[in-house]
């Protein structure tokens, strides 16, 4: 799995959403959001786009993949 940093928590809090609310909006479990925030789960493109739309922040700002 490619290593990446995830800034989701920052943008989610800025948007005033709880993990549960965000999970409901994008149709996943809260545990998945938790893993995403810890960069322990590499999301699909669809989920990444859904999250980006939910928090209204570009994908590349939320998920930062490290250059090798």
């Amino acid at each position: 799995m490619a290593e990446f940093e995830c800034n989701l928590k920052k943008y989610r809090v800025l948007k005033g959403l709880t993990q549960e609310q965000l999970a409901d909006q994008v149709g996943v479990r809260r545990e998945t959001i938790m893993r995403l925030e810890k960069a322990q789960y590499n999301p699909s493109l669809k989920l990444a786009i859904d999250i980006s739309r939910a928090v209204e922040v570009p994908i590349e700002d939320i998920f930062v993949f490290k250059q090798e």
Binding site: G27, V28, R29, E31, T32, R35, Y41, P43, S44, K46, L47
Partner: peptide, 8 residues
């Protein structure tokens, strides 16, 4: 009764 999201 767990939601089957993509990670699951």
């Amino acid at each position: 009764d767990t939601l089957m999201d993509e990670r699951f």
